[in-house]
Design a protein around this nucleic acid. Structure first.
Lengths: 192, 192
DNA sequence: CTCGATTTCCTAGCGATGCTAGGATCGTGT
DNA sequence: ACACGATCCTAGCATCGCTAGGAAATCGAG
């Protein structure tokens, strides 16, 4: 038994290595640079080994996305829990979200832009994704307003942040005015 | 002279054909299906001909984007001009925007998602792009509020719509609740 | 009308990509 | 010591964006 357990551990360890390496590579040189060959060379195995862990590149992206979702949920909760008044809480949420996207662009892409083969907003949605949305919901439901469904409000607020992130990162919006844009969102959407 | 003029016309005509074909192909099978080989075969020329018109695939995407920007600007103006009250105007803008994105997903991607090699929000930004933003600005500046910069407000409103479009199309948001989400944007962001 | 010069275009090929088939190699249990 | 199974790598396929180099068609001058 012990031998098989060790093999299992080593396999799991190698899988973590693949995901971590893919993430690093994507973060440093972009997802286009994450080719199966380069990735295989970085982990010092041949390409086919990747396919014994994942169906393909998509699933690797998906694995990075799940990792990112967990981290983002934690970051949002940590930032919002420490705040007192609602306005500060929501402001912290927005800034944490934008900051996460700015600091981890590749992870953000894996989560919300690329196809990682994950199910969203459905029955079979992985827990980390549900939890990330829940983290937003927890903070935002208190400012949704009485006649607005908290989940709906969270979706719209999230979409607004997501729009700012993607348009800014692709050069469609200038990064200089990010702060006033966030203020506007807080003032108007969140009625604060 | 006449001979050269005819040649020039034929070249321009072929260039239009390339852009139109790329757009059709992308709209029907997605941008991934728009390969230089397929595109060349559709227009009944060899691949190198494409490179005598465009530097590469990026520029072809850019050409489709410019076409789309012109159409979107026209659609937004047509929809908003016909409306009387501000609330109806902004509602028409939002719905026209989402409708355009839904009906022309590939063009929308070329405009706001893919890299078409175009300059945005800068000095050298092509006129169609500036004009598309101007179309939004014209309608939205009247509801920005007194103490809010109209351009800033337009950016935020646009980003919100863009977020809804992209998250919905990639399955991150369910399409069912699009209408109430828009209503929420109108009520809160646009104070209507 | 002919013939060199120029433009126009296509065939063929390069280095990559994601992914897979097949066999070699290693470790295991008897 | 040996045979069996799991493990892994070499080599290859089809496809991608893009380009070099020569064939073919067209043009202008004598």
């Amino acid at each position: 038994m012990s031998v098989q357990e060790r093999k299992g551990r080593e396999r799991a360890e190698r899988e973590r290595l693949i995901v971590a390496t893919a993430r690093d590579l994507a973060e440093q040189q972009g997802w286009d640079a994450v080719t199966t060959r380069r990735l295989a060379e970085c982990i010092e195995y041949s390409q086919p080994v990747l396919y014994s862990h994942f169906r393909g590149k998509r699933e690797i992206i998906g694995a990075v996305a799940l990792q990112g979702a967990t981290e983002m949920a934690a970051a949002v909760r940590a930032a919002t829990d420490a705040m007192g008044r609602p306005r500060e809480r929501v402001a912290a949420l927005a800034r944490t979200y934008l900051d996460f996207a700015a600091r981890n662009p590749a992870v953000y892409d894996a989560l919300f832009q690329l196809d990682g083969g994950l199910a969203y907003a459905q029955e079979g949605t992985p827990q980390p994704l549900k939890d990330a949305f829940a983290a937003l919901l927890e903070c935002l439901s208190e400012v949704a307003g009485d006649d607005v469904d908290p989940a709906l409000f969270t979706e719209v607020f999230w979409a607004s942040l997501h729009g700012l992130v993607t348009l800014t990162r692709t050069g469609r919006l200038l990064p200089e005015n990010t702060e006033p844009r966030v203020e506007l969102l807080l003032d108007r959407l969140a009625l604060l």
